[in-house]
Amino acid sequence: MVVVQRRELTFWERMYLPEIVRGLVITFKKMFEPRVTRQYPEQAMPTTAVTRGQPRLTVKDDGNIACVSCGLCEAACPAYAITIDGKETDRFIEREPERFDIDMLRCILCGFCEEACPKEAIFMSNELELANTTREGLVYDMEQLKRSTSTLQPRIDYVRKINDRW
């Protein structure tokens, strides 16, 4: 058995009131300082082009998806989150995805897909929120992943810039 020797409280400490006053002084001081707590989700965190959020597919200005379903992101994905099936199109670019699923529960937001893509078709967007009541609902299909080029433009410019360094 270990007997813990507690420190004897001093007279002022045993008085109790001066300590209350000391605490309230800190409280009142903080009331006039700028607040640091963010009211999430009402106040979202600001994002920049560097933010590596969830991957999204670009839709070109002519309304067609930029992806040609080459499967490189699928091969690069370390978490096996991506599944792609291709099909033939009548357009000049002969191939487009028939199915493009990303399992957001598996996705680790590493950005390898964006790096592997030869067609500027997949980008890490600034979208970070992910919630659903079922697991199936978090496997996003092509329609849920499509974003217009203008939405993704800051990220596209950023990726082009960093790729120029190589």
Partner: peptide, 9 residues
């Protein structure tokens, strides 16, 4: 087999 699968899959 046209556009059905990528050969590494």
């Amino acid at each position: 087999f046209r556009f059905k699968a990528r050969v590494w899959n």
